[in-house]
């Protein structure tokens, strides 16, 4: 046996599944409320945009300023941390507002562009900026939601801790898969349960525990790789004796934890990368919008 005791394999990195099931219903309700709010806001804004246009004014001015205001609010979400030390709105609430506002921006943006592609270079520049900001924002949102769903109840994971835990899991899996110490007694001839387990370890488990795996699958939230792995484990289970099954069960828990650990690592890396896109582009978009307003009012002819 190695440094890591077998019991450690049972030490959960992922929290209790029971809590997740209990909390599922309120979370769905919350999402429905959020979706309802977004829909209601969209309807209200659509009505006002229609009313604005039917009042013989150019709707582009209405949704344009709405868009500029919403982008300003998004920027304030980031800048307030540097400016305001104490806020009566919690960070969590700010984040919710930020995400909600982001969806509103997408709707207003579609309205502002009249649901069509841009015609000029400058408009393409703004269009692409906003699309990238929106996509990165959506990506970040789902990244966070995915992390919350998978890593709920866990301590904050650092890269160092993840690396160490990787090693612990690999050792534990190796210990479980290797044979027991030999005895002098000659056993009766039986099936080579242990050999099968060792083969499985060598062919499948060792590469899996060798380092972070399935990067792309975790990035898109896919469980396909894990389903395949668990099917193999369950397929082997029927050929093992009782002792082998117990080991295999422990290995299965280690595999699950390793997978969550891989996911957490991907999350950590992506969370750094998407912000590197989202944040500068948001400020850049604001600058583009500023010049856009100058041009629009310089060449305006109708009523607004």
């Amino acid at each position: 046996m190695g440094d890591v005791p077998l019991s450690m394999a049972n030490e959960p990195f992922a929290g209790a599944d029971a809590n997740r099931i209990v909390q599922a219903r309120p979370r769905i309700r919350g999402k429905l409320i959020h979706a309802g709010c977004i829909l209601a806001t969209a309807l209200i804004l659509t009505y006002f945009a229609w009313a604005y246009e039917s009042a013989l004014r150019d709707r582009s001015y209405f949704d344009g300023w709405l868009l500029a205001s919403a982008i300003g609010l998004q920027i304030w979400f980031h800048a307030r941390r540097k400016v305001v030390s104490n806020s009566f709105i919690s960070n969590k609430s700010w984040l919710s507002i930020h995400i909600f506002n982001g969806y509103v921006i997408i709707g207003v943006f579609l309205s502002h562009t009249k649901y069509s592609l841009p015609d000029s270079f400058y408009e393409w520049l703004m269009w692409l900026s906003l699309v990238l900001v929106s996509l990165s924002g959506i990506f970040g949102t789902y990244l966070k939601w995915g992390a919350q769903a998978k890593l709920r109840g866990q301590d904050e994971l650092s890269p160092e801790r993840a690396k160490r835990r990787h090693k612990e899991l690999a050792v534990a899996a190796m210990n479980l898969a290797r044979p027991e110490e030999e005895t002098l007694e000659l056993p009766l001839p039986t099936a080579p349960y242990q050999a099968w387990l060792e083969d499985f370890y060598k062919s499948t488990l060792r590469p899996f525990f060798g380092g972070p795996q399935n990067y792309l699958s975790h990035m898109v939230g896919s469980q396909r790789h894990m389903k395949k792995m668990l099917e193999e484990i369950d397929g082997l289970d029927r050929y093992l004796n009782q002792e082998g099954r117990e080991k295999l069960h422990a290995i299965k828990q280690l595999v699950l934890e390793k997978d969550r650990l891989d996911f957490a690592l991907v999350q950590m890396q992506l969370s750094k990368i998407w912000l590197l896109v989202h944040l500068p582009l948001t400020y850049g978009l604001f600058v583009l919008a500023f010049f856009h307003v100058i041009v629009v009012y310089s060449f305006a002819s109708g009523a607004w």
Binding site: L275, L279, P280, Y283, F291
Partner: peptide, 22 residues
Amino acid sequence: DAVSTRVRATLLLVAGLLVVIP
């Protein structure tokens, strides 16, 4: 480090746009 990278990228982009667009 990550924050400073983002800030640097943001400042660079904003400054670039303020010069290039006019």
